[in-house]
Design a protein around this nucleic acid. Sequence first.
DNA 1: GATAAATACGATAAAATTTATCGTATTTAT
DNA 2: ATAAATACGATAAATTTTATCGTATTTATC
Lengths: 131, 131
Amino acid sequence: MLKITRKVEYALIALKHMQTKEDESLTTAKEIAYQYNVPQQLLAKSLQQMSKNHIIEATKGINGGYRIKANLNGISLKDFFEKLEGPLGVMDCYFDSECQISGCNVKAPIERINDNIRKMLSTMTLEEVTQ
Amino acid sequence: MLKITRKVEYALIALKHMQTKEDESLTTAKEIAYQYNVPQQLLAKSLQQMSKNHIIEATKGINGGYRIKANLNGISLKDFFEKLEGPLGVMDCYFDSECQISGCNVKAPIERINDNIRKMLSTMTLEEVTQ
DNA sequence: GATAAATACGATAAAATTTATCGTATTTAT
DNA sequence: ATAAATACGATAAATTTTATCGTATTTATC
Ligand code: FES
Ligand code: FES
């Protein structure tokens, strides 16, 4: 319950790793995978998704790699999570579909919990987490 | 990611349902299961766990059932979740074991996220959710 | 131009977790 | 005794998460 996925953790590890390097240098998926002993292909997917979302930028080709592109202070943790995993809901009822439970009497309360979690995650920035 | 389980939702549904009834009356698992079309045996386990934790009290035997026992205002959502699901951590590294990722560089940041989620859930009470 | 090393990405397999069911024991009012 | 309820361990089914596979594309270097 309330778990952060590996996909997100791998992304955070990569960001934090890149932040400790000089601005100009590129980092490869292989390098990170080796250093933290993490599955490279899976890590690569987190990197690709961050690239798609302009958090980092990718350089292809033989001397390629990734570097941080965005201002991490401008990205809330809520936005970051949603970029990687889609809309953030503690119950799937809101985005995906309607309630599966007929006449569910706790939809509103659960929505309130959800709002509070989202609100909290909106106050934390990526920079704050990776700094 | 960050999902509330059925086990917890069934518990909330049951609490909310019982709150709308007169104080003295008992509610059976069957009654709730039927009304919300929810698997009775599974719901029963949520009820049993709440009973163990003195949130509700159970009466056995042919005219048995459950009724609310605790003051729901005195129970935070954090405590409630932990009574049902054990220690609340967005990553299993803290309670279960050590980090599986060698030299994980985001343990402290993730712990910070975790603290904030727990802090937030400490400010919400069960009463607030079921009222 | 061939090669090597990197990103990109869809498809699939494996593992883990969540959800549900089964079977049986116990309690208690009638 | 019986019926209707809680209690609970064991197991099965379903779903989700995690990991791997295979292939395509890009690009610096020789
Ligand atoms: S089934 Fe949608 S909130 Fe309960
Ligand atoms: S593996 Fe424990 S926080 Fe990263």
